[in-house]
Simulated scan of single mutants.
Amino acid sequence: MGSFSLIHWIILGIVILLLFGGNRFSAMMKDVAHGLKSFKQGLSEEDEKKQAEFRAQQDQRQIPPAAGPMAGQQPIDLEARPSADPAPRDDQQR
């Protein structure tokens, strides 16, 4: 009682075809397919824009070659090294 049988589905399909007609139904399906294609195309264009923005950000993050007033200077050495002539400590002076 709660579910439709095969006969019910066939009758329902015939009624829908009579109401919408063959051409109208195929035109609706064509419109749905066109909508899906444009949706996918929009997604791919959006992905391409994001990738281009990401590449531009990566290019900006790269350090440019040395130019300007500090171009000839050597980089600063940050390693801790003992000096050649250490200052005497308190206990060594006594």
Rank of each mutant, 00 (worst) to 15 (best):
D91L: 09
G22C: 06
P65T: 07
L6N: 01
M70W: 12
E53M: 04
D47R: 15
E53K: 12
P88H: 01
P65E: 15
I76G: 02
L43N: 08
D85L: 09
P75G: 04
E53G: 03
P65H: 04
D85S: 07
K49Y: 05
S3H: 11
S83N: 03
L6R: 15
I10Q: 14
S5H: 12
Q60S: 10
Q41D: 12
I76H: 02
P86T: 01
D31M: 10
M1P: 07
S38H: 11
G13L: 10
P88W: 00
S44P: 01
R24V: 01
F39D: 11
P64Y: 03
D85I: 07
S5P: 01
D91V: 06
F20D: 03
P69L: 07
G13W: 04
G22S: 12
G22H: 11
D90W: 10
A56F: 06
L12G: 04
P69N: 10
I63K: 15
R24K: 09
G13T: 08
G13I: 08
Q60W: 09
A52R: 15
I16L: 14
S44H: 03
N23T: 07
F54Y: 13
L19A: 07
Q57D: 08
I63V: 15
M28D: 00
P86H: 00
G72M: 03
Q92P: 02
F25P: 02
M1H: 10
D90F: 14
A33E: 14
G35S: 13
E48R: 14
L19Y: 10
M70P: 00
A80F: 10
M28G: 06
P65D: 13
A80V: 07
P64I: 04
D31F: 07
G13V: 04
L6Q: 14
L18R: 14
M28A: 08
